[in-house]
């Protein structure tokens, strides 16, 4: 849980030594309308940050910009996004291809839409391994099965030969995570990755991400509307509202003693209903 940025504010974080990801005064614009107005935060190697906010807060937009895939019509109109020191805001497609995989990878809410329905999941994972890691066909297959096994999937050889429609949402998300970590990235971006899952499956996937972080020194940028999910995994929280950072800091500090009125309302809303209240009712 210790991190060089744990107790620092955003300004101090900026000066911290060699952050893995450094977003500075990021502005995003769609046409004439500015949607994100100067968002800044940093992520140290091995750290996990939660980006929270209600729909329309700009958290997903910010996340897409960091991944180099802003929605059509949205452009970075100011600020910088530095990944391991390099400004990626002006990256070309080819430059992105180089960093996706070994540097940064992502998983999203709807895993099925990121897989080709007419190819087995193993084939799709193997393809990534061969293209990105230059593995030989046979080696890639062995590596793919190994990866699927380390995702906690039972009978990985069997899963390897199955088509996406044969797998449940939770299994598909594990396959997507396998593809994401196959290039051994430094940073994993998870955008509402467990939102559509059943609560038991969500718990399993969160556990999986926690395990991967520990085993692979993976940094994590977790985007979620659910504060409880963020509380499971993140060292620090950045709260967004209407395209601005309203508060950021260590998770426990932000969730237990929120300083900003908006964060306070967010936490109070979350706590109004919940299993914890039952015991005290």
């Amino acid at each position: 849980m210790t991190s060089p940025l744990l107790a620092s504010d955003p300004a101090a974080a900026a000066s911290a030594a060699a952050p893995l990801l450094r977003v500075d005064d990021l502005h995003l614009t769609a046409g004439a309308r500015e949607l994100v107005h100067g968002v800044s935060f940093g992520l140290a190697p091995g750290e996990a940050i939660g980006l929270v906010g209600e729909s329309g807060s700009g958290k997903t937009l910010t996340c897409r910009a960091i991944l180099g895939v802003p929605p059509p019509g949205v452009t970075v109109s100011g600020g910088t996004i530095r990944l391991a020191g390099e400004d990626v805001a002006a990256y070309t497609r080819r430059q992105w291809d180089r960093v996706r995989g070994p540097r940064i990878a992502a998983v999203f809410q709807d895993p099925a839409s990121y897989l080709n329905p007419s190819l087995t999941v193993g084939r799709q994972l193997t393809e990534v391994l061969r293209v990105k890691n230059g593995l030989h066909r046979r080696v890639a297959r062995a590596r793919a099965v190994e990866l699927l096994a380390s995702m906690g999937l039972h009978r990985p050889e069997h899963v390897h030969d199955q088509y996406p429609y044969e797998l449940s949402g939770g299994m598909l998300q594990r396959v997507l995570i396998a593809i994401a970590v196959s290039g051994d990235p430094d940073l994993l971006v998870a955008d509402e990755a467990t939102t559509a899952l059943d609560v038991t499956v969500q718990a399993e996937v969160l556990d999986l991400i926690a395990t991967l972080r520990a085993e692979r020194q993976l940094s994590l940028l977790l985007v979620s509307h659910d504060l409880a999910v963020v509380a499971q995994l993140c060292d620090r929280v950045v709260v967004l509202r209407h395209g601005r950072v309203v508060e950021s800091g260590p998770t426990r500090q932000v969730l237990d003693e929120p300083a900003d009125p908006y964060t306070r309302a967010l936490v109070a809303d979350h706590r109004e209903y919940g299993l914890d209240r039952l015991a005290t009712r």
């Binding site: 769609a30 329309g56 937009l61 895939v69 929605p71 990121y114």
Partner: peptide, 14 residues
């Protein structure tokens, strides 16, 4: 609505 479009767009696989 526009804001929703921006929040819901599927991105290319990274």
């Amino acid at each position: 609505a526009p804001q929703e479009v921006l929040d819901d767009v599927p991105a290319a696989r990274v």
